[in-house]
Simulated assay, not measured.
Amino acid sequence: MSKSIELKKKAAEIRIRLMQMIHKAKAGHTGGSLSNTDILTVLYYHTMRHNPMEPKWNERDRFIASKGHSVESLWCILADLGYFPSSELDTFSQFGTRLIGHPNNKVDGIEMNTGALGHGLPISVGMALAAKRYDNDYRVFCLMGDGEQAEGSVWEAAMAGSHYKLDNLVGIIDRNGLQISGSTEDVMGLDPLDKKWEAFGWHVVSIDGNDIDALIETFDKVPSVEGKPTLIIANTVKGKGVSFAENAINWHHRVPSEEELALAVQELQAQIESLDSKEEPCHE
């Protein structure tokens, strides 16, 4: 199986599991987790250096989910990789669970508690700077939301990342165009987002953030420019992979009904079967 198809299938499997998890918990941020699944799939199954058997390995690449409310895809990936038992996903958002609605560093694979928007990139700058100071070659990846760009601390961190020439730092914006109260451009206009980040001294790449091949190609080039941090504007579809949730603002944190879950699983299974058919050997 090609790497690209393997990752596309994995992303569909993760989407199925997160929909099941949110349905069971009767809580969760569905739309943003679906939009960021392809990004996280490529990072964890292809790009980042990490080891579930040694989660505190010093040379691991660091990942910070600054848009911590969309943690469901991350929980499913960490469980699938063996950071904790998959059965624990059934406790998501239940009383006494470790798997709360934001990343929780009591769980192996989580670097820090996040979810108060605007905090992830400043801490990522500190981690990347520490790597430079201590002569470590790990990279730091920070996933932000597009609505999160309204936080002033993001831009303070952007200035610092450029000032310290942190080419081991990668910021990723899940640019799905929607936040809890509407379109990002109606709530707090961001465009031209690329020009703003470039003005802060970052190397900026804009890609289709739901295109596995584009993500592989882009992440394979990191660090992209010597002496500059990289900012990837990952243009995504909120609710990606589930037709009735795509680009629908009410799916920001809506819980699927039994019928909606069944339809979502059916659609995602069809995607997996379609990918399987592409891998069938050709007999002449």
Rank of each mutant, 00 (worst) to 15 (best):
T230R: 03
V205H: 07
E258T: 11
G145N: 06
D146P: 07
N105K: 13
Q94Y: 01
G177P: 02
I100Q: 13
D38N: 14
A65S: 14
D61Q: 12
E59G: 15
L43A: 13
A214V: 00
E88Q: 13
M21E: 04
T37L: 11
P103C: 05
R98L: 14
D276R: 08
G115P: 06
I207C: 05
K26N: 12
E246N: 02
S274W: 08
H69D: 04
I272Y: 06
K24C: 02
N247Y: 01
Q269S: 10
V225Q: 15
V140F: 14
L81T: 07
W75H: 03
L121D: 07
M112H: 02
K221N: 10
F141M: 09
G182F: 07
W197A: 03
G241Y: 08
V237H: 01
L143R: 05
T218Y: 03
K24P: 01
F141A: 09
L166W: 13
K8H: 04
E198S: 13
L275M: 09
I14Q: 08
D191S: 12
A27G: 11
L178Y: 05
D213R: 06
H119E: 07
K278Q: 14
C76N: 13
R62H: 15
M144E: 00
N250F: 07
M127K: 15
L74E: 02
T37W: 09
E279N: 09
Y45H: 15
S162M: 05
E258Q: 10
G115R: 07
D220Y: 05
R98T: 12
W202C: 03
R139Y: 13
N210D: 11
R62N: 12
Y83M: 03
K240Y: 14
I22L: 06
K278N: 01
S33N: 07
K9G: 08
N247V: 06
I212M: 11
E258F: 12
T41C: 11
T30W: 02
N168I: 02
I233H: 06
H23L: 03
P192E: 04
K26D: 11
N250D: 13
G177W: 01
W57G: 05
G182H: 08
L81P: 02
C142R: 01
E258Y: 12
I16T: 07
A150N: 14
D38V: 10
W57H: 10
Y164A: 05
W202E: 03
E259V: 10
I207A: 05
K67T: 13
L129V: 01
A65C: 14
H283I: 06
G241K: 07
T91R: 09
G152H: 11
N136R: 15
L268Q: 08
L89F: 11
L268R: 12
Y164W: 15
E148K: 08
G177F: 00
T230Q: 13
V242C: 10
A27R: 07
V204M: 11
E258A: 10
Q266D: 12
N51K: 13
D90S: 14
S73G: 12
D80G: 06
W155G: 11
G209Q: 04
I216C: 01
G28I: 03
S274Q: 12
L190E: 00
I173M: 11
A25K: 01
Q20M: 11
Q266I: 00
M19D: 03
G145E: 08
K10R: 15
T30R: 02
S153V: 00
H283A: 06
G68F: 02
H252K: 01
G96C: 09
Q20A: 04
N168K: 09
Q94W: 00
G227K: 09
A130M: 14
K240L: 01
T236R: 08
M127A: 14
